[in-house]
Design a protein around this nucleic acid. Structure first.
Length: 268
DNA sequence: ATGGTGGTATGACCA
């Protein structure tokens, strides 16, 4: 069996817990990274996930942000990290951990609101510090995955209307360049390792019937370092939960990896 | 159409 790794911005785990439980039961990922849990740690529903056979790690706050990692309990989660050097940030957007000889870095990248705004400057600074951290960390591990809501559409093919979105937030040259800086450290966008349908997106605005009309962006990514990318056997976006009642505005993104031996060595 | 929806919290924010 391959190892299945997924990422999903749930836009409030409080509201979306039934969706996450149903999706875990259907897809049975080995590892699931969540973003926008919007829950302080003392309200994280860890018991619900342990009942389903998942160990959890979380870094949350009230109202905004919040990230978590779920991993099947036969894997041991080690070396958790919530803050990186040079970024003194109360916003809970970063969660890293080791599973076996795999490093997982779960990111809820800053949205940025509008190119040129204060929040955009924060986004670019935040990305710069995360890139520095990855540069310092990537050589330590055999396998390294960076996944999450990047709030950046890598290229025009990831945008439903590239001309309308040209140089807008999530699509600007500066943001795409920052993503390239991360990828230049040796990472592949696993989704693009395979032939994919045109107009494949992971986020659709709640407004203007974005999902029904497939007016979306692909901003949720699963980046794998070269060694891990070589073991990637499949990558896709599961649009199903986006069609459920009261959905998140994001769909889960998933990668499958031929990692059995690498993970088994370290599994407890 | 310069809006629209949704979550949090119950005011405006954030997306």
């Amino acid at each position: 069996m391959p190892v299945k790794i997924a990422s999903w911005n749930v836009n409030s785990l409080n509201v979306r817990l039934p969706h996450v439980i149903e999706w875990l039961d259907a897809e049975k990922p080995d590892i699931l990274a969540l973003q926008e849990t919007k829950l302080p740690d003392d309200r994280f529903p860890a018991d619900h996930f342990s009942e389903l056979g998942y160990e959890v790690l979380y870094s949350g706050q009230k109202t905004y942000n919040g990230v978590a990692i779920l991993a099947r309990t036969h894997y041991e989660i080690r070396n958790p990290l919530t803050d990186i050097p040079g970024l003194d940030d109360p916003q809970r957007r970063i969660l890293a951990a080791d599973i076996g000889n795999l490093r997982i870095l779960n990111l809820y990248v800053v949205n940025g609101q509008e190119v040129g705004s204060d929040k955009f400057a924060y986004k670019m600074h935040w990305l710069d510090k995360v890139t520095d951290y990855v540069r310092s960390d990537v050589g330590v591990y055999d396998y390294y995955v960076i996944l999450g809501d990047f709030n950046i559409a890598p290229a025009d093919e990831d945008v439903h209307d590239p001309d309308m979105w040209r140089d807008k937030i999530l699509c600007s040259v500066q943001e795409r360049s920052a993503l390239e800086n991360i990828k230049s450290l040796g990472f592949k966008d696993t989704f693009r390792l395979f032939e994919q349908p045109d107009n494949s997106f992971s986020w659709w605005d709640y407004r203007a019937a974005g999902f029904r009309r497939n007016l979306g962006l692909r901003i949720d990514l699963l980046l794998a370092n070269t060694a891990l990318a070589k073991r990637c056997t499949r990558a896709w976006i599961d649009r199903t939960p986006r069609g459920w009642d009261r959905p998140s505005d994001h769909a889960p993104v998933i990668g499958e990896f031929d990692l059995d031996n690498a993970m088994d060595v370290q599994a407890r």
